[in-house]
Simulated assay, not measured.
Amino acid sequence: MTQRAIERRLRRHPSQDGDGVKISRIHDFGGGLDPFLMLDELGSEHPDDYIGGFPPHPHRGIQTLTYVLNGGLTHEDHLGHASTIGPGDAQWMHTGHGIIHSEMPLTDSQGLHAFQLWLNLPARDKLSAATYRDVKADQMPRIAAAGSELIALGGDWWLDGEGVSGPLDALAGHGAVAHLRFSPGALTLEQAAATFLLYVFEGRLEAGGEKLEQGELARFGPGNEVLLSGDTHAQALLLAGTPYNEPIAHYGPFVMNTREELDQALRDYRDGTLAQ
């Protein structure tokens, strides 16, 4: 096994989206996280920070994966999908040619805490048919190791020699996503994907011999194994995938390969054909 080292760090920054929803965001539309584009974290005990939600809006050229820790989100789209996810649940949306949807927040005693990940689609799939799926918490397999727990949302994961595959098996870029609840000690995480990212959203961790603080995302270099250690409880999202190495053109909710394709998406949205 070859140990992976951290080759790049990004830190979350405050942003705002939808109807005034306050979020923490990490993004790279230049290909530095390929096939991933953006990770938003919604987290607040104050309803005014998020209650406006995300009224109907379009997308083309991406997939989104939304994962809830506290509270919930209700999804509706022009295809007739309507569902609500709560703590531990996830929803996956393949926007393809186009989708118009809304996401409205729900709250519980701990407020709202959720994530939304954007995955790029390869050029061949940018105009494919749109689809949607949700996955409940009890459908996600888990690995327990040394007091820690890995919850597999999608893709293949190995922790201390044990492997699982998450139910979301159509993530773009052979994507894999997991939630790690870390207890003090040491773990060996095996992941050979060309792109491997770790985002610490609670506490702190040591990964590949370097400390990661809350709010930091690390991209690892080549290899197939990362040693995780620490003396405090922590939580992190794990992301892995295969890059496309294709040009990226981005404007608002649309991600294509060229400026001309973006212009076409805007025209299609204006004339009502984006989501047909």
Rank of each mutant, 00 (worst) to 15 (best):
R219T: 10
G154C: 13
A145N: 06
G175A: 11
D40E: 03
G86D: 03
G96D: 03
E76Y: 08
P243C: 08
L159S: 07
H250K: 15
G223W: 07
G147S: 09
P141M: 13
E162F: 04
S83C: 13
G221W: 10
Q16V: 12
G155H: 05
S44N: 01
R8K: 14
L112H: 00
I85V: 11
Q191R: 11
G166D: 06
Y50L: 02
E45W: 02
V21N: 01
S24R: 11
A218Q: 13
P243A: 09
V177A: 04
A240M: 08
A5Y: 04
E216T: 13
T95W: 03
R259G: 11
H27Y: 01
E260P: 00
N257A: 01
F254I: 08
L205W: 14
G161E: 04
F54G: 09
P35T: 07
A218Y: 11
R9V: 14
R267L: 15
I248H: 05
A82P: 00
E41N: 09
G61W: 04
H174C: 08
D271Q: 12
G155K: 02
H113I: 00
V200T: 05
R25S: 01
G175E: 08
N120G: 14
W118H: 13
E206S: 08
T74M: 07
R12Y: 03
E7R: 12
Y251N: 10
E45V: 11
Q276Y: 07
N70C: 06
T188D: 13
L65C: 10
A275D: 12
H59W: 03
Q3W: 06
A249I: 05
D108N: 13
E7K: 10
P105H: 05
F196I: 06
Q116P: 09
E246C: 13
A129E: 15
P222L: 02
S102E: 10
N245H: 15
T2R: 15
A207F: 04
G163N: 14
G52W: 06
L238H: 02
P47K: 04
P222E: 11
D138K: 12
G98D: 02
I26K: 07
G32C: 00
L237R: 03
A240F: 09
A218W: 13
G161Y: 07
F254T: 07
M38H: 03
G147Y: 14
P35M: 11
A82C: 10
M1R: 09
A152D: 02
A146G: 03
H174R: 13
D169T: 14
Q214Y: 07
H250N: 10
L266R: 14
F182G: 04
H27S: 10
V177P: 00
R142G: 00
V135C: 06
S15P: 04
I26P: 06
G209T: 01
W92P: 05
R219M: 10
Y251S: 15
S183M: 11
G31T: 10
